[in-house]
């Protein structure tokens, strides 16, 4: 029915099977023509490659270079210190603590936010639910709410002395003494929960998009077979959206690695560094206005170490995700 419209929500999955490009044998032999044949493609790639080299690759390489200097970010970097910054990063307890927190943020986003958002997306995807567009908008609002404002509102709401949530908990008799949500021991889970709240709308929209790809007739068929809700979810919905799920996973992972704004607005990495993440750690050394001299070289080293480890971890999961992605799209 929609074979030409390419993406119409009604497109079926089996159409997708082998991508149309890549004719199997020939191109190898036609070497001389390759460049000319692809000339336009390279022209189309050029702007991106140019910007990529200038604004991604070069700053990265430059940061690698700076990480070998004791440098405050102003003027030429002259004081070569070899691997001293790296040994300091690698032996810094604070760095690993921040590192662990960064990953916990991702873990929560992936293990809590993603499944929850999927469930809500399934509910909001139902055509029979009235006002679902309004619900979508409401659930999306936190995404666009200014982070600085979020920090202030939650500090007021969660206040152990007279804050709304504690009043509620106390009046219902759930707790005797107020819960200190932002104390040293509970600040991290609290900020994580707020991070989930703030990012939920995005993940929800991703899942809603994914659900659009499930053909209506598959649902019909499953209903005819007498499957109930959870069964349909397991045997119809999830297999179809799994490949998109992999992409959403990557997107969520990337977003959740950097909760800088929220942490800075809520706790400024405190109390006692309980909510420190790598981004705030780097910020403290590179841009903290209270420093006599910023340690930009050291901050670069911390960024490099973090980047390399993240990359390795992603690369390790790569084959697994790839398999999932391909399996789903088959």
């Amino acid at each position: 029915m929609t074979s030409t419209s390419t993406v119409g929500p009604g497109g079926t999955t089996e159409q997708v099977a082998p991508p149309p490009q890549r004719p199997p044998a020939t191109p190898r032999r036609r070497r001389p023509g390759t460049l000319r044949r692809h000339a336009w493609q390279y022209v189309f790639l050029a702007p991106m490659l140019l910007l990529f080299v200038a604004f991604t690759l070069w700053p990265m390489v430059a940061s690698w270079w700076y990480s070998f200097f004791d440098w405050d970010g102003v003027g030429p970097a002259t004081e070569w210190v070899g691997f001293a910054n790296f040994t300091e990063v690698l032996t810094s307890g604070r760095f690993w603590h921040a590192f662990r927190n960064s990953f916990l943020f991702s873990l929560v986003a992936i293990c809590v936010e993603m499944p929850l958002a999927l469930l809500v997306a399934i509910l909001l995807n139902s055509r029979r639910l009235r006002g679902r567009n309004l619900y979508r908008l409401l659930l999306f609002l936190p995404v666009v709410t200014t982070t600085a404002v979020v920090g202030i509102v939650f500090a007021v709401l969660l206040d152990p002395a007279g804050g709304f949530i504690n009043e509620l908990l106390r009046s219902t008799g759930l707790v005797d003494s107020p819960v200190t949500f932002l104390s040293e021991s509970s600040a991290l889970p609290t900020v994580m929960a707020i991070d989930v709240w703030k990012g939920f709308g995005i993940t929800l929209v991703y899942w809603l998009a994914a659900l659009q790809t499930v053909p209506e007739d598959l649902y019909e068929a499953s209903k005819v077979d007498g499957a109930n809700g959870p069964q349909t979810l397991r045997h119809v919905t999830i297999p179809v959206i799994a490949p998109i799920g992999v992409v959403i996973l990557l997107l969520t992972f990337q977003r959740s690695m950097n909760p800088f704004d929220l942490v800075q607005a809520m706790t400024q990495a405190g109390p006692n560094y309980a909510t420190d993440v790598v981004a705030t750690y780097i910020y403290r050394y590179a841009f903290n206005p209270e420093l006599n001299a910023p340690r930009y070289g050291f901050a670069c080293a911390a960024g490099v170490v973090f980047g390399v480890i993240t990359l390795v971890m992603t690369a390790l999961q790569g084959p697994l995700l790839r398999r999932q992605y391909l399996k789903g799209s088959r």
Binding site: I152, A155, D159, P160, A161, G162, P178, T180, F181, L182, S183, E184, A187, T267, Q268, G270, P271, N272
Partner: peptide
């Protein structure tokens, strides 16, 4: 001490609590 004082990052918090008599 006021519970949660350790997580205050903005001096307004202290002023407000004090001005309100909390």
């Amino acid at each position: 001490m006021t519970p949660g004082w350790e997580s205050w990052t903005d001096a307004s918090k202290v002023h407000t609590a004090f001005a309100k008599g909390e």
